[in-house]
């Protein structure tokens, strides 16, 4: 079982790596979106390995189901087709800055992670879904209500932003 878990972890890590490279490196935005979806599936697999099936389900439902559709709408509404804005290669300076921006936190954080490893369990315990529901309705009630207010405000704000322009025409 131990070996099988390691193999599954390596497979999911490779899926995440490939998807992330496609998501940030592809010159076509639709392909980048496919890369993002692949990455999200890989992270859902990681959640399953961590023994949190509810989080894996929510990952697929919220990210793959809702966020990716929104990004796809953004791609369609701006006509960002394959020959769009990302097709021409960026100036070399931009790649250098991007590498610097990525590698600096990577170096610092990986040094901290490897220098001070925390003792970790080998087999994570599954939290029953009843506990999560109780947490939402008892201890973390305020956060639960606030996130619904944030979603409502974001939704009405989005409608308002897109509507005002149409009336002005």
């Amino acid at each position: 079982m131990e070996v099988l878990a390691k193999v599954a972890f390596a497979v999911y890590a490779l899926i995440i790596l490939g998807g992330a490279v496609l998501a940030v490196g592809s010159s076509s935005l639709v392909r980048a979106l496919v890369g993002l979806i692949v990455t999200l599936f890989g992270v859902a697999g990681m959640y399953l390995l961590l023994n949190t099936p509810f989080m894996a389900f929510m990952q697929l439902l919220i990210y793959v189901g809702a966020v990716c559709v929104l990004v796809f709408f953004a791609v369609m509404l701006t006509r960002a087709h394959g020959e769009g804005e990302e097709a021409a290669p960026a100036p070399v300076k931009q790649y250098l800055y991007a590498l610097l921006a990525g590698l600096t936190p990577a170096a610092i954080l990986s040094w901290i992670i490897l220098k001070h490893p925390l003792a970790s369990k080998t087999v994570p315990l599954e939290v029953p879904i009843v506990e999560l529901g109780k947490g939402l309705l008892e201890q973390y009630f305020l956060a639960f209500e606030l996130i619904s207010v944030v979603l409502l405000v974001a939704m009405s704000g989005a409608v308002l932003l897109a509507w005002e322009r149409r009336e002005k025409k």
């Binding site: 992330a20 998501a23 940030v24 935005l29 701006t78 804005e85 990302e86 921006a101 990525g102 936190p105």
Partner: peptide
């Protein structure tokens, strides 16, 4: 790291 690299390197808002 992939996200930070992408947000600096991408030239469109969707990316």
């Amino acid at each position: 790291v992939a996200g930070l690299y992408g947000i600096v390197q991408r030239r469109s808002l969707v990316g």
